[in-house]
């Protein structure tokens, strides 16, 4: 049984490579059938907003790539409720079917996975 992996993505999408790197790990792991989950935390929740236009800053569309996660077998997708609240986004539409978790559910989530990567 391969080790399960939780990827915590906590950076905004366009300012640096972290969000892209977290997604690449998830897509590669999914392509190889690893049991993995992705959690959007802190500024990482900004990746989930619809209708972003990255071509305006000469970037590839990370938000389109994110939509492929379920196709790559990554269906355990979570977002931190508090991170949404802090940014006024708790009722905002999201571009992925993410499950919202409070702090204690997040602690339990991290506990459940064999390995954790935070980017």
């Amino acid at each position: 049984m391969p080790q399960s992996l939780l990827i915590i993505s906590r950076q905004a999408p366009w300012a640096g490579p972290s969000a892209r790197e977290a997604l690449d790990i998830a897509l590669a792991g999914g392509a190889f059938d690893l049991p993995l989950a992705m959690l959007f935390l802190d500024d990482g929740v900004f990746q989930l907003l619809p209708e972003q236009q990255p071509t305006a800053v000469q970037q590839k569309d990370l938000t389109a790539n994110l939509q492929a996660l379920p196709m790559f077998g990554v269906e355990a997708l979570y977002v931190a409720e508090r991170s949404l609240q802090e940014r006024g986004l708790q009722t905002h539409p999201m571009n992925l079917p993410v499950q919202m978790l409070d702090d204690s559910a997040l602690t339990a989530l991290i506990d459940r996975y064999d390995q954790v990567i935070t980017l």
Partner: peptide, 18 residues
Amino acid sequence: GFYDEFQLSPANRPLIKY
């Protein structure tokens, strides 16, 4: 169609699923 939708080329598993 996959590329249009997701802006990336599918690996084997996602291609099969799609």
